[in-house]
Amino acid sequence: MTGFRLADGGGPVIPNYGEPSACLRHNGWFCTDWIHEHWGDTLQPALIQHIQLTLIAVGIGFVIAFGLALVALRFGFLDPPLGVFTDFLYMIPSLALFQLLVPLSGLTVTTVEIALVSYTLFILYRNIVVGLRSVPPDVLESARGMGLTRRQTFLRVELPLAMPAILSGLRIAIVATISIATVAAFLIQDGLGAPIFDAIGTPDLFKTELLAAGGLAILLALTADLLLAFAQRALTPWNRLR
């Protein structure tokens, strides 16, 4: 489904750019000349697309999951079916879900985003519900005793106490989405999956492109993981020991 991009120099043979380097001719693991030449037209745009795919999916997923969690906490009987529903979404293999959505929304970024959002729901919904539910009843009792309104209790007591669970959910969701978004290139040329699929689809497998794009995907995930780990520490100073 992902065509080979010969015209814009996606493969190891680059007829219009003069002699390929010795590294490229031998399909080396890390030909810096190719990376220099195609950073601007291949790698950087793919990286930016990938970040966009991830942020949009996790952003929308978070809003939906938060809403669902609030509904589940208010109406407890809805929690089991919502949990099963998000579990079920998570169990559909990404390769199939991307294709199943095509009749609904076509070969578009929207299709990819719907699939990615549905995967984030499982992680985010569970963590938000667990976090909000873990607030001890006597803490809520004393908040009420101090005269806080329901809204104040939620914003100043429940939400901060649920923060560790919510943040760890966000962290897992973002990293997982970065990983799953690479599969999206099976459908459309978008994100870091596109150069990865191109590289694997090239006869002989174009190693430099695979390693460069794959390495960027791994680096992006690791960076996000690290940043969110710091955010977790910064936002929950009372929780430093764990």
């Binding site: 897992i172 990293v175 997982a176 970065i178 990983s179 799953i180 690479t182 599969v183 290139a185 999956g193 990865i196 699929f197 590289a199 694997i200 497998l205 695979l210 390693l211 794959g214 995907a217 791994i218 995930a221 690791l222 993981d225 690290l226 780990a229």
Partner: peptide, 14 residues
Amino acid sequence: SLGRSLPSVVLIGL
């Protein structure tokens, strides 16, 4: 962290 950060497509490609 590392295990979560490795996209399966990249690993299978490698």
